[in-house]
Design a protein around this nucleic acid. Structure first.
Length: 270
DNA sequence: GCCCAGGGAATCG
DNA sequence: CGATTCCATGGG
């Protein structure tokens, strides 16, 4: 990874990476556009301001240590997306999807945040998902100079039914609380689930009330980088009906989740 | 006003 | 089992 450190900032070049395509393609809900090609957000409880200036990405107020240990991993900078997109291009639809938003990368997000976020996502639209999550963070997340971190499971586990009414999550409130309690008590061990075989991992997550196959798959994909999962929501269902009536192409084998992200963004913005 | 949203639980046949 | 219905809310 080629980079340099100057005046408290990290600078690096990276192909196959566009901030708006990666941060605003529906995989993460907390990145905010605060200026030209400049976003502010968090990985777990680590805040970051990132922007693109000319051909260089800039991470503000970031040490080399944090870049290498946190952000390199979060933005999946070690994965060869040129190779992936070339594989995907064996299929015409995917080729179009990759060309449509060639700067998408799959973020390696926090496990608990992904679980909680995708519980909130069910039967909901993205602008409202963002609103609910922002209110949740403002009420129960730790305050930092750059906004509020995502609330800990332990914090939410102490709440009772109705405490979350102000965030207006609707019927999802009891799901959030159930997930928080099971995670905080260790009844659901997210670190361990990340290592389990597909069916076991899914089954374990689905012990949480409000977690079905789709939310489980999203948690595994976005929170645990289990890229063999291919979450199917209403948009992807349309992709399958329209383009893949006979099943998914072999060229995505082993990378189904990354292909899914390109397809999801493509069908939604067609 | 109306339709629908990155679904899942509860209920019914 | 599979199919239906209900859930709470508000963006577009």
């Amino acid at each position: 990874m080629d980079y340099f450190y100057r005046n408290n900032n990290i600078y690096f070049k990276q192909d196959d990476f566009t901030l708006c395509e990666t941060l605003d393609c529906g995989q993460a809900f907390r990145w905010q556009l605060i200026g030209t090609d400049t976003y502010q957000g968090f990985n777990s409880s680590n805040p970051l301001t990132i922007s693109k200036q000319n051909d260089c990405f800039v991470l503000y107020n970031t040490s080399e240590e944090d870049f290498l240990n946190i952000w390199c991993d979060y933005f999946d900078l070690k994965t060869d997306y040129k190779m992936l997109k070339s594989k995907f291009s064996g299929d015409e639809t995917l080729k179009a999807a990759c060309n449509f938003a060639p700067g998408i990368r799959l973020l390696r997000q926090d496990k608990w945040e992904a679980l909680c976020s995708f519980i909130i996502s069910q039967n909901n639209n993205i602008p409202r998902i963002k609103g609910i999550i922002n209110r949740l963070c403002e009420m129960y997340g730790k305050k930092t100079d750059f906004g509020y971190a995502f609330p800990l499971a332990e914090t939410l586990a102490g709440l009772k039914q109705g405490d979350l009414a102000p965030i207006r999550a609707g019927f999802r409130e009891r799901y959030i609380l159930d997930a928080a309690k099971k995670v905080a008590l260790g009844e659901i061990d997210l670190e361990n689930i990340a290592t389990l075989p597909c069916d076991d991992a899914r089954k374990e997550l689905m012990k949480i009330c409000g977690v079905g196959i789709k939310v489980a798959d999203c948690t595994l994909l976005y929170g645990m980088y289990r890229i063999e999962f291919f979450p199917v929501d209403v948009w992807i269902k349309r992709v399958l009906e329209q383009y893949y009536p006979c099943g998914l192409p072999d060229c995505i084998k082993g990378y189904e989740g990354i292909a899914q992200q390109f397809l999801f963004h493509y069908i939604r913005n067609l």
